[in-house]
Design a binder for these strands. Structure first.
Lengths: 189, 189
DNA sequence: ACCATGTGAGACGTGGACGTCTCAGAAGGA
DNA sequence: TCCTTCTGAGACGTCCACGTCTCACATGGT
C-alpha cells in the first residue's frame, strides 16, 4: 500500500521537452508538446492542468534556472565585470527559454507577472549597481536599463544562434563583449 | 465619372493605428484593431484581406520606415559611430513596431520571410562593417551579430519604455551608449 | 432628385485548439 | 494470479477568432 510512482521524474522531462519545443515554435499546440515529450495529450493534461499551467511551470523553471545561474556566478565576488562574464556563461543554456518567456511576458502584459521576475530583476540590477559603485561601470546607464538590455541581448543571441546567423560557440563571447565593451574600439592603454 | 476615393488616406491611418495597438498587445483581435481605428470589422477586411495581409502590410511599413531612417541617417557619411547615433535616433519612432515585427517573425519561423529584412540586414551590417574598416569598431564582433544586437536593443528599449521602466527621453541615449560604448567605464584618455 | 460608392451592424458558417471524459490495455507490485 | 495505477487513443462538446455575406444607411457627386 505504498505509493511508488507519483509522476515526478517524467514531470521534469516533459517540462524540458516543452521548453525545447516552445522555444523554437512559440505557437506549438498542446498536442505537439505532448508528442514531442513522447506522451499523449491526455497525459500531458494530467501533468499540467492546461496551457496556462504549462507556461507558468516554464516560467518557474526559467526563473529557477536564472537564479541558479546567478548564484553560480557569485555576483558579489571580485570585479563586477568578471561576475557578468560568469553570469552570461552560466545563463547560456537557459537563453532560449529566457527569450521565449521574455516575449511571452510581453503578450500578456495585462496580467500580473510572476514575482520571481521582479526578484530576479532586482538581483541583476544590484550586480550592475555594484559595478557602478566600484567604479567599473559607467553611471549614466541605469541598472534597470542594463538589466533589460541583458535580457534583450540574451534573446537576440539565442535567436541568432537558432537561426544560424552566428555560431553557437560565440554566444557568450559576443554578448559579454558587446555588453561590457561596446562596439567601439578601445584606445590602447 | 472620375474615381475620387479609393481608400488610400484611411488605409495608412488604419495601418498606423493597428501598429500602435498590436505593438501593445500582439494578440489583439481583428475586431479590436478595427475598433481602435474607428472602423468596423467589415471595413477592416475591405482594407486587408485578412490578418495575414495586415501583418504583411505592417511588415512592409516597418521595413519602409527602417529604410527611410537608414537613408536619413546617411550611413556612409562621416564616422560610423555618428552614423549609428543618427540611425538609432531616426529609428526611435519605429522601435515599437520593430519590436513587434521582430517577435512576430520569430513565431512563424517556418515560412519564408520578407526579403526586405534581408536587404535591410545587409545595409545595417554594411554600416557596421564600414566602422570596422575605418578602425572605429572592433573587429571581433561580426556585423551580423551587431545587426542582430541592434534589433534586440531596440526591442528591449521600446518595451522598457512601454512598461515605464525607463524614461522615453532616454531611449536613444541608452541604446546608443550601450551599443557603442558598453557598460565599462572608459579610461580617461 | 437620382445613383453610386463606401460603410456599419450583424448574422452565419468554419476551423482549430482547448479541456473533459471514457475505456481498454500495459506495467508492476502484492 | 489478481489488482491497482497509469497510460494512450479517441470521442465528444465548447469556445473564440476568423472570413464571408447581406442589407440598410449615409455621403457625395451629377
Amino acid at each position: 500500500m505504498v505509493y511508488v510512482c507519483f509522476m515526478a521524474v517524467d514531470h521534469d522531462h516533459v517540462l524540458r521537452t516543452a521548453a525545447a519545443l516552445l522555444t523554437r515554435r512559440a505557437t506549438a499546440t498542446m498536442d505537439e508538446v505532448a508528442r514531442a515529450a513522447g506522451i499523449s495529450r491526455a497525459t500531458l493534461h494530467r501533468h499540467f492542468a492546461g496551457r496556462d499551467a504549462l507556461i507558468r511551470a516554464l516560467e518557474d523553471l526559467g526563473i529557477a534556472e536564472c537564479e541558479a545561474a546567478l548564484e553560480a556566478a557569485r555576483p558579489d565576488e571580485g570585479p563586477a565585470a568578471d561576475a557578468v562574464r560568469r553570469l552570461v556563461r552560466a545563463l547560456e543554456p537557459s537563453a532560449a527559454l529566457l527569450a521565449f518567456l521574455y516575449t511571452e511576458n510581453q503578450l500578456f502584459e495585462g496580467e500580473e507577472q510572476n514575482e520571481g521576475w521582479t526578484r530576479l530583476d532586482a538581483r541583476l540590477a544590484a550586480l550592475f549597481r555594484r559595478g557602478q559603485d566600484r567604479g567599473e561601470f559607467r553611471i549614466d546607464l541605469s541598472p534597470a536599463w542594463l538589466t533589460e538590455a541583458l535580457y534583450g541581448l540574451l534573446g537576440s543571441g539565442a535567436w541568432a544562434v537558432a537561426e544560424g546567423r552566428v555560431a553557437r560557440n560565440d554566444f557568450t563571447y559576443m554578448i559579454v563583449e558587446l555588453l561590457l565593451g561596446g562596439v567601439c574600439r578601445r584606445e590602447e592603454p
